[in-house]
Amino acid sequence: MAEKRNIFLIGPIGAGKSTIGRKLAEQLNLEFFDSDKEIEQRTGADLSWVFDVEGEDGFRYREEKVINELTKKQGIVLATGGGSVKSSKISNILSSRGIVIYLKTTIDKQLYRTYRDKKRPLLQVENTQREILTILAKERNPLYEKIANITICTDEQSVYMVANKIINILKNN
């Protein structure tokens, strides 16, 4: 049954991993975790601060530890950070410990969904957000595709619709 499996959500900034993950966990009666939120709770600081003080390498080290720990649990839904798949260790952990679902979205939707969000460290640089998201998409989309068991486009669907689509796919597998 889908309820016993770990479900790991991957995808770019603004794909809906956290929002959809919460809804999915609620509908399947599973525990929900967000790796970014876990890092913030454990450090007592927001991600921007961790990035500023420790750099991306320091953040990725923390992310690796958190994801390794959380994925050892059973019956969870985990929303991962957009860049977590850059680590082959994290990719291998996700692939071996649960079902990996790639929530795919367009750059236009990402821009719309993150327009007012000031908490995303990689979007707080001098390039335009579209340029940054395009660079990240070229780097990360192939990594998402490589480890995904299931790919779902979230662009024109409600959170409820995406969650139900995932549940139906899992029940039929």
Rank of each mutant, 00 (worst) to 15 (best):
L9F: 11
I10D: 07
I10F: 08
P12T: 13
P12I: 10
I13Y: 10
G14Q: 03
G16W: 01
K17A: 10
S18I: 09
I20V: 15
I20W: 07
R22E: 11
L24S: 01
A25S: 11
A25M: 02
E26C: 01
Q27E: 13
Q27R: 12
L28H: 09
L28G: 09
N29F: 00
N29K: 15
L30F: 09
E31D: 06
F32T: 14
D36F: 09
D36I: 10
D46M: 06
L47G: 00
V50C: 09
V50H: 02
D52Y: 09
D52A: 15
G58P: 12
E69C: 12
L70T: 07
K73T: 05
Q74E: 15
T80C: 14
S84M: 11
S87E: 09
S88G: 10
S88M: 02
I90L: 03
N92A: 13
I93W: 09
L94H: 08
S96K: 15
S96G: 13
S96T: 14
I107M: 04
D108E: 13
D108F: 01
Q110N: 03
L111N: 05
L111W: 06
Y112K: 12
Y112G: 01
R113T: 00
T114P: 06
Y115S: 13
Y115R: 15
K118H: 01
L122Q: 11
L123R: 10
E126P: 04
E126I: 02
N127D: 15
R130G: 03
E131H: 10
I132A: 07
L133N: 01
I135P: 04
L136I: 00
L136N: 07
R140C: 05
N141Y: 14
P142K: 08
L143I: 08
Y144A: 01
Y144N: 00
I147C: 02
I147T: 11
A148N: 10
D155S: 06
E156Q: 12
Q157C: 06
Y160T: 13
M161Y: 02
V162L: 00
I167Y: 10
I167M: 13
N168D: 12
I169V: 14
K171N: 14
K171L: 09
N172E: 14
N172L: 14
